[in-house]
Amino acid sequence: MKKLILMVFVCFLGMQMTFAQDIISVKEFLKIKSDPNVVLVSARKPADYKKVHIAGAININHKDLYKATPKSTLKSSAEIAKILGEKGISNNNTIVIYDNGSGKYSGRMYWILKYLGAKDVKLLDGHMKAWRMARKPVTKNPANRQATTFAVNLNKGAIASIVQVKKASNSATSIIVDVRAADEYNGTKESKLPKGHIPSAINLEFKNVMNSKAKLKSKEELQALFTAAGITKDKEVILYCESSVRAGIVYLALTSALNYPNVKVYDGAMFEWAASEIVQK
């Protein structure tokens, strides 16, 4: 009987560890914080970082990783790798990311790093909110790391092109998910972009994968959420928003928490879709 209980406990623990592989609590982070291979990254806006940040965190502004046009699309992998290396981040580091609690900027950085082939990327669960609640050290002093080399190993399966999205919009084996707010999806919100959404896309706002404490919802809650929306493991899932910044946290929920095998982010997003001639053909 004792052996059976032990086996059940070990299995349960294994499930918890699998769920939490890319999410790390404040308590768990404090255990590894002093490891020189661990890099803490604030994905908050530079102005917020200058006011106060978690002690030891370096700052990376996601906007520094984009081309001018199409708006908010990624620079070349070589250019991003150079920026990361100059910041002291290699693809072999354990990289822990946080933001103010929205999950937008940390999620975006998470997806970028996973796309570039970083081996160990985690989000601090609860972000700055959880850190302050735990009354852990903050500072105004910027942190710096010695420059290194980030070796790119592209995960091409993590990104979707506009051609792939157009094909997916007419495919029963694919599902396109617009992670914007309902009024953006429906076209009732004032915007510089054309109103509406990519044809056949469903709407599931990114905020729904987190709870009120800025923590990722449980595996059971997430699975119920996606299943109810028709987002199942047997389909190719393509995520986007206005610029796909908000898609990153949903990518993490699907791939890390729920082990969905085929999830992509459409990096060009609505900015590229609305401006492209491809979609008119």
Rank of each mutant, 00 (worst) to 15 (best):
A43P: 00
A181H: 11
T227R: 10
R246W: 12
K233S: 12
R135S: 05
V52F: 11
Y105T: 09
T94E: 13
I23C: 10
I97W: 00
S77F: 05
W111E: 01
L74S: 01
L30R: 13
A274G: 05
K156T: 11
N61D: 14
G230Q: 10
K215W: 00
I23W: 08
I89E: 01
S34K: 14
W131P: 13
L30W: 01
K33F: 06
I231D: 14
V163M: 11
I60Y: 08
A55R: 13
F19I: 08
S34G: 05
A118K: 15
Q280C: 06
A247N: 04
K63L: 13
Y105N: 14
A253Q: 02
K219V: 11
V41G: 00
I198S: 00
A224V: 05
I176W: 02
I175E: 13
K31D: 13
A47T: 13
R246S: 14
L239Q: 02
K235N: 01
E86N: 12
E86L: 05
K104D: 15
W131D: 14
A20Y: 14
N153W: 02
N186D: 15
E205F: 04
N93M: 06
V250K: 00
P46H: 04
Y105G: 06
I238V: 08
K87M: 03
G88P: 01
Y251R: 07
T18E: 15
V265W: 00
N262C: 07
A158C: 07
E272D: 02
N170L: 15
G14F: 01
L124E: 09
K215M: 14
S171C: 13
V39C: 06
L225V: 07
Y49V: 10
M133V: 15
E184N: 13
P36S: 06
N37M: 10
T232G: 04
S72H: 15
T188M: 05
I238R: 08
A78W: 00
V209K: 04
F9M: 08
N153A: 12
F29R: 06
P70T: 11
K166A: 12
N259G: 10
L193W: 00
N59A: 08
